[in-house]
Amino acid sequence: MQLLTDIISWTTILGGSFFVITGGIGILRLPDFFTRLHAVSMPDTLGVGLIVIGLVVQTGFSLTSVKLIMILLFMLFTGPAATHALAKAAIHGKLEPLLFNKEESSSSS
């Protein structure tokens, strides 16, 4: 039983760490602000979610895991609000999103 919970929590925490690192790579590699928004929303959802699930599995049923679930729910509710506010502020600040067709024409010139 102990082995089973260990395996489950190790797998989920490692998976979450992978998505967190992928988000970090993406925020450096992607070419413009609007595409970087997508890279940030990845660790905010599945990265946090998998790590928290791994910690909950390791803790078992107690008040600590309730707190962890509340942190996860809070981040899932506030993350999109912050991202949407950022994107809206950027559009109102006259920041032009890089589009696929424009990118093609600029790379050929």
């Binding site: 988000g23 925020i27 602000f33 970087r36 928004l37 940030v40 660790p43 905010d44 912050a82 950022l86 502020a89 950027a90 600040g93 920041l95």
Partner: peptide
């Protein structure tokens, strides 16, 4: 905006 995004993340 890139900087604010980075700080939020």
């Amino acid at each position: 905006y890139d900087r604010i995004l980075a700080v939020n993340s």
